[in-house]
Amino acid sequence: MENINWIALVVAALSTLVIGFLWYGPLFGKAWMKETGITEAQAQKGMPLRFGLSVVLAFIAIFFIYATSVITGGMPPDEVHSINNPQFHTFGHGVIHGIGAALFIAMPVLVTNALFEQKSFKYILINVGYWIVTFAIMGGIVNAWV
């Protein structure tokens, strides 16, 4: 783990803010606010704290993606995808790992919570879609920037 590219991890974590700005702003902001039942004024409250915590949490998530796709590729002990095998260090390959993490880890958690909170299908699509895109971009960044 001594070869970790901390800059790539930080950039990937910060990318969540850019994607979130677009996703929950011009792309799906109005629909998301309608589905959550909050107003724009409510959404603006406490933004610095939410941004800060979300970057910390994104850093934890990207560290997991990095560990499973770049360091081991999720395939120990033969290390087929390991840091020693650069043919897998592409943006596209990282996108695949990011999408896998989103579909097999984030999506089940988000959908289960939304079902018990009795949220709409549109709400689920907006939030799960965000994490699929975000994990894909984060995975691409860290895989290409080894």
Rank of each mutant, 00 (worst) to 15 (best):
M1A: 14
E2I: 10
E2D: 15
N5Y: 04
N5P: 04
W6E: 12
A8S: 06
L9V: 05
V10W: 09
V11K: 00
V11F: 02
A12W: 02
L14A: 10
L14I: 11
S15L: 04
L17A: 08
V18I: 13
F21H: 12
Y24G: 10
P26N: 10
L27K: 00
F28A: 02
G29T: 08
G29K: 04
A31M: 08
W32M: 03
M33I: 00
K34H: 11
K34I: 08
K34C: 05
K34D: 07
T36R: 09
G37S: 01
G37H: 05
A41R: 05
A43Q: 15
K45E: 15
L49G: 15
R50F: 09
F51Y: 15
F51K: 07
F51I: 12
L53H: 07
L53R: 12
L53Q: 10
S54K: 01
A58I: 10
F59W: 04
A61S: 14
A61V: 08
I62H: 00
F63N: 09
F64G: 03
F64H: 08
A67P: 06
V70K: 01
G74Y: 15
P76V: 13
E79A: 14
V80Y: 14
V80L: 14
H81E: 04
S82W: 06
S82N: 11
I83F: 14
I83S: 09
N84S: 13
Q87W: 11
Q87P: 03
H89E: 06
H89P: 02
T90P: 03
T90C: 00
G94F: 05
I96R: 00
I96G: 09
I96L: 14
F104C: 10
I105A: 06
A106S: 15
A106H: 10
A106T: 15
V109R: 09
V111Y: 01
V111R: 02
V111I: 13
T112V: 09
N113K: 12
A114Y: 05
A114F: 04
E117N: 12
Q118V: 12
K119N: 11
S120R: 03
K122S: 13
I124R: 05
I124S: 06
L125V: 08
L125P: 01
I126C: 01
G129V: 05
I132F: 00
V133R: 00
V133K: 00
V133C: 01
T134R: 01
F135V: 07
A136M: 02
I137R: 06
I137C: 09
G139C: 04
G139H: 02
G140R: 03
